[in-house]
Design a protein around this nucleic acid. Structure first.
Length: 471
DNA sequence: ATGTTC
């Protein structure tokens, strides 16, 4: 893909406006990460996104960007709601509200080691995962699903699935206000009925980890991240419900676009004005899926607490934060009302932001960055004046397709390598394992380093895995 | 990511 990258700084590259682009493209990456990008059509997708009606500043891409549906994964795009700005389901992705939460045990890894096998076995039987394999929460009636879509984690906690303190440490305090279950199709609701509290498959996982290294002592102390502390990272989204909502609205908007005089260079960029009935309905359904996705992670966290309680006698795992990396939000930036699409890009609120709870406000929001299997994860922190609407990277970023990865990897060998590295693996199918081999991903250290140098976020701590549950 | 091609 020859779109012409101009080096602005060693960690920021510009694609000049050309053709129908309304704004330039801006890619945050080191020179070393660029070859991985240019092999794909991902840069062409950055260009395509720059043509969307109402887009402001630039079509941004994070250091972990790669090819996606319409928008690149790792893409950030904001449209001006008051100047014909559009919302696009492809700018959020199929797994609406996919995200991560991090739980902290009051336990040092040395004390867990003798019981690690027992803990992993407990999680093995506790955590539903894979395609269509049940869920923690058996809903008694469809009306309960409506409560989840409207009330999110707030409803889950009120029903006994968690504690009040969990709410403050969820993005949006666990529930987006403008969700409307009526905007969610019957088919989407049907698919969501039996998946509340389930991991799913692909890159979703539950990992028992320990704090391996601290880079920013004061912020790490505020977050409660001390070396050797045991923590649990849960990475999942809105399962079939979010997928169906995306499918429904891509179709709706593809049919409606001509009425608004919108044309896009790729059908997968289907969109509608934020203020249109279609745009409003999508945002209401998307918000419902966001509430569902967070509730899903909440239920898995409760199941994890019960497993810890049984094995270690202490199930009081504290929630550091729960944050999505696939969402569009209505936000005010420099007194403009914007619809900010983050697709494979994590919200990264700066210190002092009013949406943060009291204990996190002084230092900024925890930005949870899951790595590929066996590699571990990072905790970053939001910084003042971030250059992409308070967004940061969301992971290592895929380098090889699932097919390529599965073709070049032997499951038994990979499993043996993980076990040899002291990482207990539970529940992963051979196919799921090979598709998620770390070889299929970029170097997480390089991605996070680029993120920090580009001024998107500050590096706080690195976590290393001791056990992984996969679909 | 996904009842992995309505």
């Amino acid at each position: 893909m020859s779109v012409g990258l101009v080096e602005e700084t060693p960690y920021r590259w510009r694609i000049e406006r050309q053709g129908a682009m309304r704004v330039p493209g801006v890619v945050f990456a080191s020179r070393a990460l660029l070859p991985d990008l240019s092999e794909e059509q991902a840069l062409g997708q950055v260009v395509n996104v720059a043509t969307l009606p109402g887009i402001v500043e630039a079509s941004y891409a994070m250091p972990d960007m790669h090819w996606g549906y319409g928008f690149p994964i790792g893409g950030v795009a904001a449209t001006d709601v008051d100047h014909d700005g559009v919302v696009s389901p492809g700018g959020v992705g199929f797994d609406i509200s996919c995200g991560v939460r991090l739980l902290l045990a009051d336990l040092h890894i040395d004390r867990l080691r003798p019981r690690l096998t027992a803990l992993m076995d407990a999680l093995d039987v506790t955590i539903p995962r894979g395609m269509r394999h049940g869920a923690v929460w058996r809903l008694r009636r469809p009306a309960e699903l409506e409560e989840i879509l409207t009330g999110g984690v707030r409803y889950a906690v009120a029903q006994g699935h968690g504690r009040d303190g969990d709410l403050d440490h969820c993005e949006d305090r666990g529930a987006v206000a403008d969700a409307d279950p009526a905007a969610v199709s019957a088919r989407a609701r049907q698919r969501g009925l039996e998946q509340v509290g389930s991991l799913g498959s692909g890159n979703h996982f539950l990992e028992v980890e320990t704090v391996a290294e601290v880079y920013d002592e004061p912020i790490a102390r505020s977050y409660g991240l001390w070396p050797g502390r045991v923590c649990v990272m849960i990475h999942t989204g809105s399962r079939g419900l979010g997928h169906q909502i995306c499918t429904d609205f891509v179709r709706t908007m593809q049919a409606a676009m001509h009425r608004y005089g919108i044309s896009v260079p790729d059908k997968q960029l289907a969109c509608a004005p934020v203020s249109s009935p279609e745009g409003q309905a999508y945002l209401a359904a998307m918000a419902a899926a966001a509430n569902y996705g967070r509730t899903n992670r909440q239920l898995l966290a409760e199941a994890t607490r019960r497993a810890f309680e049984r094995v270690t006698g202490d199930g009081e795992l504290a929630l550091l934060y729960d944050v999505s990396h696939n969402l569009a939000k209505l936000e005010t930036h420099r007194s403009s009302r914007l619809c900010v699409h983050r697709k494979g890009a994590t919200l990264a609120l700066p210190p002092g932001h009013p949406d943060l709870p009291d204990d996190l406000r002084p230092v900024g929001q925890p930005v949870l960055v899951p790595g590929s299997m066996g590699v571990g994860s990072y905790v970053l922190a939001g910084v003042p004046d971030g250059p992409a609407f308070a967004s940061a990277c969301h992971g290592a970023g895929r380098r090889l397709s699932r097919h390529q990865a599965a073709r070049t990897t032997k499951a038994a060998r990979l499993r043996a390598e993980l076990e040899a590295a002291g990482i207990a693996v539970r529940g992963a199918s051979a196919r799921g394992l090979t598709e998620e081999t770390p070889c299929a991903y970029k170097d997480l250290d390089a991605v996070v380093d680029a993120c920090a140098h580009a001024g998107l976020a500050r590096i706080v701590a690195r976590l290393t895995p001791v056990g992984v549950v996969k679909g």
